[in-house]
């Protein structure tokens, strides 16, 4: 799995590419958390558009980042257009607490509109 990260204002934008499972979540978690805390950020956008596989380990990873963002009164959102990823996100109930958008701009605008 490839992870690319970008910091825009107080947003950490994380783009996942490939397969997110138990094996790949370990490394992703460390990388995301160190960037988030070292740069003292509050908001996070998880871009899952280039994921072609995700299981419940990915759900655990997102739930953990959700908690971290809430602790800092920040916001977290998901960008995704993949139906199989959406299926497991929906099944887990995550989409009841995290907004999903189809692109990064919408995710940032969505937060501003609130």
């Amino acid at each position: 799995m490839r992870l690319s990260t970008n910091i825009v204002k107080d947003y950490l934008i994380v783009a996942f590419e490939g397969e997110l499972d138990h094996h790949t979540t370990e490394e992703a978690r460390m990388k995301i958390d160190s960037l988030y805390y070292d740069n003292n950020l509050s908001n996070m956008i998880l871009d899952l558009r280039k994921l072609n596989f995700m299981d419940s380990s990915g759900i655990g990873l997102i739930m953990g980042r959700y908690r971290n963002c809430k602790e800092r009164q920040g916001d977290i959102s998901i960008v995704n257009t993949n139906p199989s990823v959406e299926r497991i996100l929906r099944m887990s109930g995550l989409l009841k607490i995290i907004n999903m958008y189809s692109n990064i701009e919408e995710a940032i605008d969505g937060k501003r509109g609130e």
């Binding site: 299981d55 419940s56 759900i59 655990g60 990873l61 739930m63 099944m91 887990s92």
Partner: peptide, 10 residues
């Protein structure tokens, strides 16, 4: 370990 507890449900 930040497991979601969703494995069997999935």
């Amino acid at each position: 370990l930040e497991r979601s507890g969703m494995g069997f449900t999935v």
